[in-house]
Simulated scan of single mutants.
Amino acid sequence: MSEVSNLRQVEIIDMEDGKVTRIKIYGFDGEFVKADEESSPVKITIDGEDISEVIQPSTPTPKDAVLFEDGTEVQLLSGGGSYPLYGYEDGEIYRVESDGEWGFHDPDEVVRIVGEFNDEGGFAKPEQLEVIEKGEFVGNDSEGNPLYVGDYVVGVTDWYGITNTDMYLGKIVEDEHDIKGYMEVQVLAHEDVGEVFEFPFSVLPGRFRKATAEEIAKHT
Rank of each mutant, 00 (worst) to 15 (best):
P146Y: 09
S142L: 03
D192H: 11
E198D: 15
G79V: 02
P62V: 07
M1K: 11
E49T: 07
D119F: 08
D90L: 01
F197A: 06
L7E: 14
N140P: 01
E89M: 10
I162V: 15
M183S: 02
N118H: 15
Y160N: 14
G122M: 01
D47W: 03
E31L: 09
V185G: 00
V74S: 03
Y26R: 14
D175Q: 14
D29E: 15
Q128H: 13
F201D: 15
E31G: 02
N118L: 12
V187Y: 05
M1H: 07
K134F: 03
D192K: 12
V74P: 02
Q56I: 05
V10E: 09
E120N: 04
G194D: 14
V173T: 12
G170V: 07
R95H: 08
I55A: 10
E184D: 08
I25F: 12
H219S: 07
E73S: 09
E97L: 02
I51F: 00
D108F: 03
Y94D: 06
G122W: 02
R112F: 04
D47Q: 14
A124K: 01
E133L: 06
Y152C: 05
F123K: 14
E38F: 14
M167W: 03
K134G: 05
G100H: 06
P57D: 12
V110Y: 00
G139L: 12
E136K: 06
Q75Y: 04
F104S: 12
G18C: 02
D158L: 03
T59G: 03
I93E: 15
P107G: 06
P126N: 11
N164Y: 03
T157K: 08
I25Q: 13
E11N: 11
P84I: 01
I23K: 01
T45G: 02
F68I: 09
E143I: 09
D36M: 05
Y160R: 13
D70S: 10
S40P: 01
V4R: 07
K34A: 00
L204K: 09
I132K: 15
E37C: 05
V196A: 07
D14L: 00
H105A: 05
P146D: 14
S82T: 13
E92W: 02
V154G: 00
E37K: 15
D29T: 06
G139M: 09
L129S: 02
Y26A: 09
P107S: 05
G100W: 04
G115C: 09
F68K: 14
V10I: 14
G103F: 03
D166S: 13
G80I: 01
E191N: 12
V20E: 00
E11I: 11
G144T: 07
V149D: 13
S98L: 04
E184N: 03
V96F: 01
G121K: 06
G122C: 04
Y94A: 04
D50R: 00
Y160D: 10
G206R: 10
P60W: 01
D192L: 11
A217G: 05
V20F: 00
E136V: 05
D64W: 07
K24Q: 15
V196D: 10
I44E: 13
I113T: 08
G18V: 01
N145V: 09
I172A: 06
S202R: 12
T45Y: 08
V193N: 07
